[in-house]
Every structure is written in structure tokens, then in C-alpha cells.
């Protein structure tokens, strides 16, 4: 009687399983830590899973505490709370963190690799897109509060010469200052941009800026497509899903030792969302070809 599994077949499965085991052993374990199970973090996790095909251990801080992974693991934190939780633990391995616009871990001394994935694309890319949308854009007022946004404007001088856009930095101590600052901007800017500053973006501040821009007939630019749904003129943004994919790519590079230092990664993918009626109210005529290329168009 012929055996159910031949010797050669057993050899084949042995070699195959050994190979798989070796390949798994070579890839570092990735632990994804999420601030909560809120949709943005879950979307980013999906992006990470798509890019980093190996199994990923997931910890959602709203449900369970962060446990130290084994040595050699890479931790990817989505959300400011997750980033702070991981950074404040005794974990010394590589940390990649994103979706944390208000958190800046680089000032904290640590030995391991630390990579921040910025929530928005590089400022040059964002300005380039806004300039395409609004060729008459020469003065762009940027409202902000949080310290973390300061890093975003490091290339400000260079950008002025590159695009002919003067960035008017309007930094506030608190949201209490917003009405005053808006009054000061009357007639002094061609558009207003709210960068991804968690201290700044609230329903109330958003509504105040939106109404101000409508009254002044100037475009209102925001850092997410959801805010375009709410009546902002346009957004040049990177989706949470794409941010997760970028985290996966960075994790691969860290795994391959291509990234060993602390660094900030700006997303190179810039999606565009346009609210056509808001654009019309602000006197902005969007060319058809740009509308066709836009990732999202709100009528």
C-alpha cells in the first residue's frame, strides 16, 4: 500500500517550514499601539497591515495596557497618547509614530531609533498644490498654537522664494485670541490655512474661520478631507490609511537597518479634496483638470 505521505513529500514540507521559520525569524516583530479604537487609528492600522505583510501584534490603549514587547521588536504608535505611552516606557527599541500632530518626542533623550511620520505632507508640496488651486495666492495666513507645528515651518524662507507665497504666521496662545487675530487679518491675506494643529482645530474655531473666510471671500484651507465636507474650501492632505502605509514602509526600512537615526518623515502623497460651492463663494475658479485629478470633490 502506498503511504499517504511519501518521504520526499515529508522532506519538502520540512524544508518549506524551515524556510518559513527562518524568514519569520529574520523579520522583526512589529507591535502596533493605538491610542484608542477610533476610526483614524484603525484606518492607519489597516494601511500598516497592507504594507507590512508580517503578523502585527496590536494593542489598543483604550482596552489594554501597553506591555513591553520582546527585544528586537519595532513599535508603531498611532496617536499622541500611544506615542507618549510607548516613549515613557522602558522600551528602548525603534519607535515609529504618527497621527500625533500635538506630540514631539524628539526632545526626550533615548537611544533607539525614533521616527515621526508627520500628519500632513511636506509644506513645499502642500503649498505647491494650493498655488495650483489658487494661482493668485501670494499671502497665506497660517493659524497655529501648538509647539509641534513650529517644526513644520522650518523651510519657510526657502518656500517664499520657491513659490512666491508669503507665509503669514499667526501664532496664538489660546483659542481666545482667534477673533482678534482674524480681525487683524482683514484685507491682509489671500487665504487662510489651518495646519494639523490639534490645539487649534475645534468645531467652534473651524466655524469661526470658515465664516470669516466666507465674509472676506477668501479660500479656507484645512488639513483633512472631513473638514472640506464641513465647508472648508480645500484640503491637501494625506489620508490616515496612507499614513499607516507610510509607517509600514518605514518599519520595513528600520527592519532592514536602512533607518537608524531619529528623523521626521513627511508624507510624499498629497491627496486633494475640494468643496466646489465653498470655492465658488470664495471667488476661486477651479480648473476642470484639477477637479478631475482631485481625490474628493464635494459639490
Amino acid at each position: 500500500m502506498k503511504p499517504f505521505l511519501s518521504l520526499n513529500t515529508l522532506k519538502f514540507f520540512f524544508l518549506l517550514s524551515t524556510g518559513i521559520a527562518c524568514s519569520i525569524a529574520h523579520a522583526e516583530e512589529v507591535v502596533a499601539v493605538l491610542s484608542s479604537d477610533a476610526a483614524p487609528y484603525e484606518e492607519a492600522l489597516n494601511g500598516l497591515r497592507e504594507t507590512y505583510s508580517q503578523p502585527i501584534v496590536t494593542i489598543r490603549l483604550a482596552r489594554e495596557a501597553f506591555k513591553l514587547p520582546r527585544d528586537g521588536a519595532i513599535v508603531v504608535a498611532f496617536g499622541g497618547k500611544a506615542a507618549l505611552e510607548v516613549a515613557s516606557s522602558s522600551f528602548q527599541g525603534p519607535i515609529i509614530y504618527g497621527l500625533a500632530p500635538g506630540v514631539k518626542l524628539h526632545t526626550q533623550p533615548r537611544s533607539g531609533t525614533l521616527v515621526k511620520i508627520h500628519t500632513s505632507p511636506a509644506i513645499a508640496l502642500v503649498l505647491k498644490r494650493y498655488k495650483e488651486l489658487q494661482p493668485s495666492l501670494h499671502r497665506l495666513a497660517v493659524l497655529w498654537i501648538g509647539d509641534s507645528i513650529a517644526d513644520y515651518f522650518e523651510q519657510k524662507e526657502q518656500l517664499q522664494t520657491s513659490f512666491g507665497v508669503e507665509l503669514i504666521s499667526v501664532r496664538m496662545k489660546t483659542l481666545d485670541d482667534l477673533p482678534t487675530q482674524l480681525r487683524n487679518l482683514q484685507g491682509k491675506t489671500d487665504a487662510i490655512w489651518m495646519p494639523p494643529d490639534a490645539s487649534l482645530i475645534t468645531p467652534q474655531s473651524f466655524a469661526a474661520v470658515r465664516e470669516f473666510c466666507r465674509a472676506q471671500h477668501i479660500p479656507f484651507y484645512v488639513p483633512s478631507d472631513g473638514l472640506v465636507d464641513k465647508g472648508a474650501t480645500a484640503a491637501v492632505y494625506t489620508s490616515f490609511h496612507d499614513l499607516g502605509r507610510i509607517a509600514g514602509s518605514v518599519a520595513k526600512k528600520v527592519d532592514a537597518r536602512d533607518v537608524t537615526d531619529s528623523t521626521v518623515v513627511f508624507p510624499d502623497k498629497a491627496s486633494i479634496a475640494i468643496n466646489v460651492s465653498a470655492a465658488a463663494q470664495s471667488g476661486l475658479k477651479i480648473p476642470t483638470e484639477i477637479l478631475q485629478k482631485a481625490d474628493k470633490v464635494v459639490p
Binding site: S35, G79, G80, K81, P101, V103, A198, S199, G226
Partner: peptide
């Protein structure tokens, strides 16, 4: 639309 920013604002403010 504001959920993400609100969630993150809790961390810093």
C-alpha cells in the same frame, strides 16, 4: 471631521 483632532487635543491641552 473633528474626532481625530479632538482625540489628539486631549493629549496636549
Amino acid at each position: 471631521a473633528f474626532e481625530f483632532f479632538q482625540e489628539e487635543a486631549k493629549v496636549t491641552t
